[in-house]
């Protein structure tokens, strides 16, 4: 099953990176959201794929009865999902703020910090 997941992850990553190279903040944001999924799938696949058996120990048992899905990548991804959502929300609000201040979502026109016509630094002493 892993080769299929490897392919799927590659597609997710391609789309995410393509979107992130856009000049427009909203597209970049969508790219960031997809990138989160791509990376989660990457971790999930690296931990090997196991169909349908969640890592839950049945009642009365001390260890799982048979082979179960790898719990470690799941634990990693679970927190990663919540954190990437927090950052996505932060980036979203940040770009909304940038838009309402600068009136554009084109990063080429956001030049406050590094203006195009910045003067030379002072040459004197």
């Amino acid at each position: 099953m892993e080769p299929v997941f490897a392919l799927l992850t590659g597609i997710f990553l391609t789309i995410a990176i393509y979107l992130m190279m856009s000049k427009f903040i909203i597209r970049m944001l969508i790219g960031v959201a997809i990138l989160g999924n791509a990376v989660n799938l990457l971790i999930f696949t690296s931990g090997r794929i196991m169909r349908e058996v969640p890592p839950v120990i049945g009642p009365g048992l001390d260890v799982p009865a048979g082979p179960v899905a790898n719990p470690l990548p799941q634990a990693l991804i679970l927190t990663a999902i919540v954190i990437s959502f927090s950052f996505f929300a932060f980036l979203l609000v940040l770009s909304w703020r940038a838009y309402s201040t600068l009136g554009t979502d084109n990063t080429d026109e956001m030049r406050v910090a590094e203006p195009d016509d910045a003067p030379l630094p002072p040459l004197g002493y």
Binding site: F5, A6, L7, G10, L13, T14, I15, A38, L42
Partner: peptide, 12 residues
């Protein structure tokens, strides 16, 4: 983007 995706697939 395609190169990155391909690279990730190969890696996986």
């Amino acid at each position: 983007a395609l190169a990155c995706g391909l690279g990730a697939t190969l890696l996986l």
